[in-house]
């Protein structure tokens, strides 16, 4: 479970201070799917980085299962990320010199798992995303949808509890987009993942349990299909 309390993230550009996230209070329960919408530059990706421990808040606390990500050492945050958090990126971010299977395997390297077990898990992950027959293909030999499937397999192969997806369909055509979202929804349901998905697409956002809208660093959260809940920019701690 995520618990964010008075979280702010400020960037300094010269003498100017830019607030990317402002006084955010939010609780995300285990197994919940939160979609985050908002215009470019309004703090969506910053929020995702904070949730993934890739960045630290300027103030406030971000707790994941009781551990304050802002206070953990870099080493422990890295270990937490390796074990519990999966990332999916808009541009897939596959290593171009490695095959689909090797890209998936890369996520298991920090976990010090034996080669045979790694192979077994990689095969299972690729099978789960329907890419078993493309395991030896390099990213350049795969379509956009196939690359994103490989990226999803890479995010899930370590069996994380949290999946952070930053516009995973942003670079895909409509048919492929539906295919990927269906896959993500299926995996979310099957595996009980906590899914936080940033998207511009309202149709996708409506499939989530909750939708948050980021605007100038403030988050407004409402149940999917319903009106915005809570005060301006925040969802109170403990709110569903």
């Amino acid at each position: 479970m995520y618990r964010l309390t008075d979280v702010s993230k400020l960037y300094h550009k010269g003498r100017r201070t830019v607030p990317a996230v402002r006084e955010l209070n939010l609780v995300i329960d285990d197994g919940q799917w939160l979609a985050v919408q908002g215009r470019t530059g309004h703090g969506k990706s910053t929020l995702l980085n904070l949730l993934g421990g890739l960045d630290r808040p300027t103030s406030g606390t971000i707790e994941l299962d009781g551990q304050d990500l802002g206070r953990l050492s870099e080493d422990r945050v890295t270990r937490l990320r390796a074990r519990s958090i999966g990332f999916i990126f808009q541009t897939f971010n596959l290593v171009p010199t490695l095959s689909a299977a090797e890209n998936v395997e890369a996520a298991l390297i920090p976990l010090r798992i034996g080669a045979a077990e790694r192979r077994r898990r990689v095969d299972a992950a690729l099978d789960a995303v329907g890419l078993a027959d493309r395991a030896r293909h390099l990213p350049g030999e795969l379509s956009g949808g196939q690359q994103q499937r490989a990226a999803i397999a890479r995010a899930l192969v370590k069996e994380p509890t949290v999946l952070l997806a930053d516009e995973p369909t942003g670079n895909l055509d409509e048919d492929t987009r539906d295919e990927i979202i269906n896959l993500l929804e299926k995996l979310w349901r099957e595996r009980g993942l906590t899914l936080i998905l940033v998207t511009h697409d309202t149709a996708i956002a409506q499939r989530a349990e909750r939708v948050g809208v980021m605007s100038k660093g403030l988050l407004t959260v409402r149940p999917a299909g319903g009106p915005a809940a809570g005060g301006p920019g925040t969802a109170p701690p403990g709110a569903p």
């Binding site: 993934g52 890739l54 080493d75 890295t78 270990r79 990320r81 390796a82 074990r83 990332f87 990126f89 541009t91 971010n93 290593v95 171009p96 890369a106 996520a107 390297i109 920090p110 976990l111 890479r154 370590k158």
Partner: peptide, 16 residues
């Protein structure tokens, strides 16, 4: 840089 950033996001340590 993107490749290494991705690896760090996957949990690779800097020393790896």
């Amino acid at each position: 840089v993107r490749e290494f950033g991705t690896l760090k996001a996957l949990g690779w340590r800097s020393r790896q």
